[in-house]
Design a protein around this nucleic acid. Structure first.
Lengths: 243, 243
DNA sequence: TCAATAGTGTCTGTTAGACATTATGGA
DNA sequence: TCCATAATGTCTAACAGACACTATTGA
């Protein structure tokens, strides 16, 4: 790709950034808020359609690659870099054999490549131009982006057992209860406490520290640290079928 | 997408088929051959580069949708429709910050959407223009397509426990040994016989018939039929951690 | 009889999930 | 004292994997 493209029947493209492609990069930015997982949505710029929302999206794949575009989209919207990012897939509108009146995507791109991104905590920039929505109660989105949101959630739930997504959402030191709550947030269901800790111990994913947390009422909790198994596959693949 | 696209700065597209996009659909066509899983590759048309191979690919997303394009690619190359088809993801060439001398894709498309397809058995059309390669010993492919092949195999292994891929590769009636061999082929590893059958029974995925197979030496095998659990999720999610 | 494949029975170690109990702080 | 949270111990049913065994055909 890029630079030489003599076979293309289109006109020569400007060589630097801001070239518009026929496809877009769309990002599902997720963050924990309270007991819920929330997704970042942007308000339509058109003042006549203030109740139309959409996901961060960009068609200028500026010689930077898809993942870099997704990362930039997250940074521009939230001010921070995602701590985890992964492609979900490519989406077009369902090709109805007879009629497809209008695009299911705000930028009218033929094709959208969706990325799921997570950031630890969102500084509340609810400027009116953007807002966080609980993932199960999103605003009305363009059809294609609604599909992408569901696919992103499914992808995260599938990968959370094998990728350190939960740890990327927590600070360096965390308690096992905090870790479990993060897993529950990502998976969207409750886990069994004893089994959760047994699985963690078996996988040797965390090591205790000397730090303790004492806040609020109950017994202080020990802080743990994430200690991924160096290269060699996880001692056990950490199956959280729990609860 | 399609038809109205007033926002696009490009010239008006011809409305019907054979419109070239900036992205391609590439298909990883897989079929069981003997004890191995094989992938379909096409020979370069350029007579000066007869040892260059590539995956079936098409840039004319002819108002038909990505999946239909993938299906057509399979049909054109093999004469049959795929019995299972699923998107793997979108792939571009790694954006080296400094230089990316040439495309990692034969059609020089910016972006390729990969689909994994399986067909039950390949009528041998090894016309010299195309050939089947054992998946672990593919020919030299364009870099992007090599990545897509590996991703397709990983995707299949991940989904084989939840999607009826193995059954789509077998005839209506099959023996449990045949089914197990198909799973082993797709997963790329041996399974434990007793555990395999226990898991099948627990998941209630198959029901015995009155037919028996008697061919070759050993004891005749009973034929089974695939009986998916109607809608309601599988009684058990059929975990084949076996062996 | 042997070889080859199909299918089953039994045993053992592991583990998920339930449940109960102890531990330790704040109000 | 009571309450809330953390952490651990024990029990049971389920199950994966190993192993051995029986069953049934053709050569």
């Amino acid at each position: 790709m890029r630079e030489r493209d003599p076979a293309l029947p289109t006109t020569r493209q400007p060589r630097a950034s801001l070239r518009r492609s026929s496809h877009s990069i769309d990002v599902i930015v997720l963050t924990p808020r309270g007991r819920q997982l929330s997704v970042l949505c942007l308000r339509a710029t058109d003042p006549r359609a203030r109740e139309r929302w959409h996901l961060p999206s960009d068609r200028s794949v500026a010689d930077e690659g898809m993942e870099a575009t997704a990362r930039r989209l997250v940074h521009d919207a939230t001010g921070v870099d995602p701590t985890w990012l992964e492609q979900v897939g490519a989406f077009a509108d369902a090709a109805e054999p007879t009629l497809t009146p209008q695009s299911g995507h705000p930028a009218e791109s033929e094709l959208s490549v969706a990325y799921a991104a997570v950031i630890p905590k969102a500084e509340d920039r609810s400027s009116g131009e953007q807002a966080w929505f609980v993932v199960h109660e999103p605003p009305v989105l363009p059809p294609r982006q609604r599909v992408m949101l569901e696919a992103a959630l499914a992808a995260i739930r599938q990968r959370v057992d094998y990728a350190p997504i939960a740890f990327r959402l927590l600070p360096e030191l965390f308690t096992l209860s905090e870790l479990q709550r993060m897993y529950e947030l990502l998976l969207g269901r409750r886990l069994h406490k004893a089994s959760f800790r047994r699985a963690l111990a078996a996988a040797q994913l965390v090591t205790p520290t000397d730090e303790w947390r004492s806040e609020g009422r109950g017994r202080p909790a020990q802080y743990y640290r994430f200690t991924p198994r160096a290269s060699g596959a996880a001692a056990r693949s950490v199956r959280f079928d729990l609860l």
